[in-house]
Design a protein around this nucleic acid. Structure first.
Lengths: 225, 225
DNA sequence: AACGAAGGCTATGAGGGTTAGCCTTCATTA
DNA sequence: TAATGAAGGCTAACCCTCATAGCCTTCGTT
């Protein structure tokens, strides 16, 4: 029925995302986006409720792309290698999209439908972490890893690592430590079995490692022969 | 010489901070701040270069207060307890100042003088972590902890933990695991000594734990008697 | 008493978001 | 074939915001 459309919601979102990433949040103006897609500002309101709606659409686009990148990174089947690959892909994506990435978690209000999106975007990662840390701890372990990765990347992008040192080394150090920490629930029984077999200690906490770190508990137990 | 000042930079910053925290970034207008301190908007420009300068001052104020809160939290001398106390204080501060806290690391450009501020604000924490992880690893370890804490808090404040589960539990889990992971470089020798004394293994890696997590290394060594 | 600087004010302009209301196009349909 | 009407564009206009220009008042200093 209508006249031929000169633009589309997708084109508007793409232009907006580009503008946002290239020139920052302040440069993301309705006039600017309109000009980029070849129409005048008021025409955008036929497809987008308002500017904040445009921002939401842009960030959803970024989030979807990030999800795809993560899914693509986890291919090999070995949970440790997959977790590492996903962490690398995550960081690489953030480096490629610094502005929009930083904004993704800056939204104060969780968008409606965010839960479904969240489930979808974390499914592969959660499955991998469940293999690493066990199903009971998968959620907490995943939150540990994601929180660290996100925090590290945000600080890195914001230029918050001002004390010198090798940031790359800090990333590797952190990733190693965290992947190891997450696997401890699995590793400790091996240790315990080995030590128990050697008769170092009479009684050891088995699976019932409390909220205190299991390594700590084990080490304490070992010092009380 | 002048007429009596009706306001001050401090009052402007305080009013701006309050407005920002209470009603968000969009409500932080020059008119709004001016009205809160009892003058007209143009008068603010006698004390503040422009709006972005005001934002900078507000965030510096927040950062200074956070530094004080952290310093005050670390009193007891035991590095583990101090690290826990600082982590709690950090999170509590963020919960008390959610908007401004989130903005602190959102600044894309590092402010000039940020390095001096960074050194000051992290001194106590770095000292504590150095006791925990050793001076060589202090910086990487501190970055691990801060990145995790910041990432966790940002996600928490943004409402990004949508998959259910107990967020409090995830925080405790993460803190335990990370503090343990950071201490491993110190703990392993104890373990090694205990195990060695018991004659479980002949040869063990001593200090030369590679980039792979030390716990993993130890566990592998224990399985090869 | 005059000076002059600090610190207020009004007026104003530029730029951005958004709405109102109109016009053109063109697939559908009588 | 001609009328219809909705989609989608446009201009004009409004309001709000930041920011500057330029003026006026105050009051310590000289």
């Amino acid at each position: 029925m209508p006249a031929h459309a000169q633009t589309s919601t997708d084109a508007i979102v793409a232009a907006g995302r580009n503008l946002l990433e290239e020139r920052g949040m302040e440069a993301l103006t309705m006039r600017g986006v309109a000009s980029a897609v070849g129409v005048r500002a008021p025409s955008l309101y036929k497809r987008v409720r308002d500017r904040s709606d445009l921002v939401r659409l842009i960030l959803e686009d970024v989030a979807d792309e990030l999800t795809s990148a993560l899914d693509a990174a986890a291919g090999c089947g070995d949970p440790v290698a997959d977790a590492r690959a996903m962490a690398s892909a995550y960081r690489a994506f953030a480096h490629d999209n610094p502005v929009t990435y930083s904004l993704m978690f800056a939204a104060q209000a969780a968008a409606p439908g965010g839960k479904a999106r969240s489930i979808r975007s974390s499914a592969t990662f959660l499955r991998t972490i469940a293999e690493l840390a066990g199903p009971d701890r998968a959620l907490s372990a995943a939150r540990l890893i994601v929180a660290w990765a996100h925090g590290f990347i945000v600080m890195e992008l914001a230029g918050a690592f001002l004390l010198g040192g090798d940031v790359e080394e800090a990333w590797e150090f952190g990733l190693d430590r965290i992947l190891t920490a997450v696997r401890q629930a699995d590793e400790v029984p091996h240790l315990v079995a080995a030590v128990e077999g050697a008769g170092v200690v009479g009684e050891l906490p088995g699976r019932s490692l409390g909220s205190v770190g299991s390594m700590e508990t084990t080490s304490l137990a070992l010092r009380t022969p």
